[in-house]
Amino acid sequence: MNWDVIQGKWKQLKGEAKSKWGELTDDDLDRAEGDRDKLVGVVQERYGLAKDEAEREVDEFYHKHAA
């Protein structure tokens, strides 16, 4: 999976990420920097999800916005 697209558009996509995961703060999103593993960690931490569930949600976000 090529996350370069997401990282390149991260400033624009932060609003979309905040819409999907309303509990994430601006600091959480800045910390993620559009990096998949960091975003998985932030989502997992904030929502108390298992790692595989957080990965699934982040991958869904990727597929929606990477095109």
Rank of each mutant, 00 (worst) to 15 (best):
Q44R: 10
D4Q: 15
R46L: 01
L29D: 03
K11N: 11
Y47Q: 00
K51I: 07
N2M: 14
E16F: 13
E16G: 07
A67D: 07
Q44N: 03
K9P: 04
V43K: 03
G15P: 12
K11R: 12
E33N: 03
D27N: 12
V40E: 01
L49N: 03
E45S: 12
K9F: 14
Y62T: 00
E33T: 05
E45L: 07
L13A: 00
W21Q: 02
N2Y: 15
D52H: 08
G41Q: 10
L29W: 10
R36Q: 05
K38Q: 10
Q44Y: 02
D26C: 10
D26W: 10
L39R: 00
K11M: 11
R36C: 09
H63W: 10
R46K: 13
A32D: 03
H65V: 08
E55R: 14
F61E: 01
L39C: 08
H63Q: 09
H65S: 06
G34D: 10
W21N: 00
T25G: 00
E45V: 01
D52P: 06
K20F: 12
K64C: 00
F61Q: 02
A32H: 03
D30H: 00
R56T: 13
Y62K: 04
D59R: 10
N2L: 15
D4P: 13
D35H: 13
K51Y: 12
D26V: 08
D59N: 12
G22Q: 12
W21I: 06
Q44A: 08
E45K: 10
V5D: 03
D30E: 12
E53P: 01
A50S: 09
D27A: 14
Y47I: 00
E57V: 05
A32P: 09
G48H: 07
L29R: 02
D35Y: 14
D4G: 15
E23N: 15
W3V: 11
W21F: 14
